[in-house]
Computed example of a mutant assay.
Amino acid sequence: MLKEVISTKNAPGAIGPYSQAIKKGNTIFVSGQLPVNPQTGEIPEDIKEQTKQSLNNVKEILAAAEASLEDVVKTTVFLKDLANFTDVNEVYGEFFTENYPARCCVEVSRLPKDAGVEIEVIAILD
Rank of each mutant, 00 (worst) to 15 (best):
M1K: 02
K3H: 08
E4H: 13
V5C: 06
I6H: 01
I6E: 00
I6P: 00
I6L: 07
S7E: 09
S7F: 15
K9P: 05
K9T: 15
K9V: 15
N10E: 12
A11R: 03
A11N: 02
P12H: 10
G13F: 08
A14M: 06
A14W: 11
A14H: 06
I15H: 03
G16F: 15
G16D: 11
S19P: 01
S19W: 14
S19C: 12
Q20L: 11
Q20T: 08
Q20A: 11
Q20I: 09
A21I: 09
A21C: 08
A21K: 02
K23C: 07
K23G: 01
K23A: 13
N26L: 04
T27N: 01
T27D: 02
I28G: 01
I28F: 10
V30F: 08
V30W: 07
S31W: 07
S31H: 08
S31E: 07
L34D: 00
P35D: 08
P35C: 12
P35W: 15
N37V: 15
P38L: 15
P38R: 08
P38Y: 15
I43T: 06
P44D: 07
E45C: 04
I47R: 01
I47P: 00
K48V: 11
E49W: 09
E49F: 15
T51K: 04
K52S: 12
S54K: 03
S54R: 01
L55I: 15
N57I: 14
V58R: 00
K59G: 05
K59S: 14
E60T: 10
E60Q: 14
I61L: 06
I61D: 00
I61K: 00
L62W: 06
L62H: 03
A63F: 10
A64E: 04
A64N: 02
A65L: 08
E66N: 12
E66K: 14
E66Y: 12
A67D: 04
L69W: 08
E70P: 01
D71R: 03
V72Y: 09
V73C: 01
V73M: 04
T75P: 00
T75Y: 09
T76R: 07
V77C: 02
F78L: 15
F78Y: 15
L79P: 00
L79R: 00
K80G: 08
D81R: 09
D81G: 08
D81Y: 15
L82C: 03
F85H: 05
F85D: 00
D87Q: 09
N89R: 11
N89K: 13
E90S: 11
E90Y: 14
V91K: 00
Y92C: 05
Y92I: 12
G93D: 04
G93H: 08
E94D: 09
E94Y: 13
E94F: 14
E94C: 07
F95K: 02
E98R: 07
E98V: 13
E98A: 11
N99K: 12
N99Q: 06
Y100Q: 05
Y100T: 05
A102R: 03
R103L: 05
R103D: 01
R103S: 07
C105E: 01
E107W: 13
E107V: 13
V108G: 04
V108E: 04
S109D: 09
R110H: 12
R110N: 10
L111E: 03
P112H: 12
K113D: 05
D114R: 07
G116S: 06
G116A: 10
V117A: 06
E118M: 11
E118L: 10
I119P: 00
I119Q: 01
V121M: 06
V121E: 03
A123L: 09
L125Y: 09
